[in-house]
């Protein structure tokens, strides 16, 4: 995903001289090297100085530029949190804060490198928009959108490398709208971000069992497509939320709230990370499984 982000940003920067990227000591991936060599004045490396990274983006935006702040998710959002809040959100500036390798993707680096609460934290901020693409193609669409939007700040939660393409041939990506990757009538899976790959595997298994399954990328978590979620709750007998995030403040509790408010009658199951730090190591799938996010466990509960 970071390569397609870089490629999309490079393309946007070629067309728009106001696009800047301010990175914090992150090794240039893919097209980022191309960006830095072709537009050295618009590629700023602050070193390990994340507060300054956000403040500089704010200053650029105050002068009409369209900056992106880019590093590992925990260091774009948590370390400079007050700068994100005051400089970007309070002033409502069109700065994209890119959280790369979000969730528990850095599965061997320990809890200091995980973002289990980023959607809740970013989503709590007034003016902040929150987008989490599910595959490299959605990442391209989201990056292109961020490069031209003037609404205000965006937290763009992306993966790292090697995520499979899941959305080929799907309906067009639209900011603020849920996106059906497949449509069915019995079960609907709502998800976003890198864990969508697991949701695809679960959807496949449910279909093998004879169920008609919808799979929805809720790529824009704020502003949430409330009408789209309520519609999914109405049209399906069983809705399943799968989320690589703490149980509070993300898609799962918001879906439950919408279900209550809309008097939904469907069955609703939510699978999230737990409200606990992760002190064990292994693969990305190992860490998710340690918190109960595995196809086997989810299928056991829902079937």
């Amino acid at each position: 995903m970071r390569n397609t982000f870089s490629e999309a940003l490079y393309d946007a920067a070629t067309k728009n001289p106001n696009i800047y990227i301010v990175v914090s000591d992150i090794s240039p991936a893919g097209s980022m090297a191309k960006f830095s060599s072709q537009y050295p004045d618009r590629f700023i490396n602050v070193g390990v100085a994340e507060q300054s990274m956000i403040g500089i983006c704010a200053g650029l935006a105050l002068k009409g530029c369209q900056p992106f702040a880019y590093t590992i998710a925990t260091f774009t959002l948590y370390r400079p949190f007050e700068m994100v809040r005051d400089d970007l959100c309070y002033q409502n500036l069109p700065v994209t804060v890119v959280g790369m390798g979000a969730g528990v993707i850095y599965s061997t680096l320990g809890g200091t490198h995980h973002t289990q609460e980023d959607m809740a934290i970013a989503g709590a901020l007034p003016n902040m928009q929150v987008i989490a693409p599910c595959d490299p193609l959605e990442c391209t669409d989201a990056t292109r959108w961020c490069a031209q939007q003037k609404n205000g700040p965006v937290y763009l939660r992306i993966g790292k490398a090697g995520e499979p393409v899941l959305t080929k041939g799907a309906e067009p990506w639209q900011f603020g709208k849920v996106r059906y990757l497949r449509r069915g009538s019995d079960v609907c899976i709502l998800t976003y971000g890198v864990i969508t790959k697991m949701a695809v595997a679960i959807a496949d298994r449910l279909q093998e069992q004879g169920k008609s399954v919808s799979l929805v990328s809720v790529h824009t978590v704020k502003p949430l497509d409330r009408a789209g979620i309520v519609d999914a709750l109405k049209r399906h007998k069983h809705v399943i939320v799968i989320e690589e995030h703490a149980p509070q403040g993300g898609l799962a509790p918001q879906t439950k709230q919408l279900a209550w408010d809309s008097k939904a009658t469907c069955r609703l199951d939510a699978f999230t990370l737990q409200d606990e730090f992760i002190h064990n190591y292994g693969s990305y799938d190992d860490l998710l499984a340690a918190h109960g996010l595995s196809p086997g466990r989810i299928l056991d509960v829902v079937t």
């Binding site: 800047y20 618009r42 507060q51 300054s52 500089i56 704010a58 200053g59 400089d87």
Partner: peptide, 30 residues
Amino acid sequence: YGNPGIEASTGALGHGLSMVVGMALAERGR
């Protein structure tokens, strides 16, 4: 920010100078 003549919201200390750096960068870039 948004009030006439006010170029940035400040109040929390330690924010201004990084915004100044970003502004100076934009001025130079243009």
